[in-house]
Every structure is written in structure tokens, then in C-alpha cells.
């Protein structure tokens, strides 16, 4: 169980770091010389966090969408870890801890979708 959980965390972190790095380099390439105050005050060029819209924008070559995709993936990594733990506890026949993990997963999904 520990090995699989560790693997999910590693893959999630590496993939999101790669996306963030690619997008970040693109952002620096485009606005590197701009004063930082202007960057942080300007309304972001890409709005929203919908994964599909972000993928489309990233495909169109907007680096900021790549960074956002990477951040979204980073945010979902702990969620994936909890989901995997629930499955592994179920496979081990450990109903109590499978229930615990499912409860946490349910709360995470409810809060991330804005239902709570």
C-alpha cells in the first residue's frame, strides 16, 4: 500500500511540475522584462479553472493555461491519493478504513465542486 500511494504522489507531483515549468518558461519568455507589480495587478489573461477549457487554451499556445493545468493537477494529487487509499483498503478487506478514506474523499469532492 505504501509503495502505491508513494507512486501516485510522485507521478502527480512530477507531471504537475512539468506542466508548470513549461507554462512558466512560456510566461517568462512573453513577459520577463515587464515590472512584476504590473503582472500581479493585471487581471489574468486566462480565466477560470475548468480543465477542458484550460486544455483547449493550452493547445492554442497560451502558457498561462499550462501553469493553471499544472496547479490543478497538483491540487488533485492529494485527492487521487485518498481515492487510491480507499480502493486499497477495500481490496485488503479493511472495511473500517475504506469507509474512513471514502468519507474524506466525499468531503473533498463536495468542497472542491463548491457544493459545500
Amino acid at each position: 500500500m505504501a509503495l502505491l500511494l508513494s507512486l501516485v504522489l510522485r507521478v502527480g507531483v512530477l507531471l504537475s511540475a512539468l506542466l508548470v515549468l513549461l507554462g512558466g518558461v512560456g510566461e517568462l519568455w512573453a513577459h520577463g522584462a515587464v515590472p512584476v507589480g504590473a503582472i500581479l495587478q493585471a487581471a489574468p489573461g486566462v480565466q477560470g479553472w475548468s480543465p477542458l477549457a484550460l486544455m483547449l487554451e493550452a493547445w492554442q499556445g497560451r502558457p498561462e493555461a499550462l501553469v493553471r493545468l499544472g496547479l490543478l493537477l497538483l491540487l488533485l494529487t492529494p485527492v487521487a491519493r485518498v481515492a487510491l487509499a480507499a480502493i486499497l483498503f477495500l481490496l485488503e478487506g479493511d472495511a473500517f478504513y475504506a469507509g474512513v478514506a471514502l468519507w474524506v474523499l466525499g468531503l473533498l469532492v463536495l468542497s472542491l465542486t463548491g457544493l459545500m
Partner: peptide, 25 residues
């Protein structure tokens, strides 16, 4: 996990700025 549980509010209000977040990550 605790941070992810509270993240929606930050995303919705635009507190997570990609240009600030990428060197941080």
C-alpha cells in the same frame, strides 16, 4: 488534504495567481 479541502474558495476568488504560483511550486 486539509489544504485541498479549503482550496475551492481560493480558486473561486482568484487568490491563486499563476505567475506567482509557478516559481513557488
Amino acid at each position: 488534504v486539509t489544504a485541498a479541502a479549503g482550496a475551492e474558495v481560493y480558486l473561486r476568488h482568484g487568490y491563486i495567481h499563476p505567475d506567482l504560483a509557478f516559481p513557488v511550486v
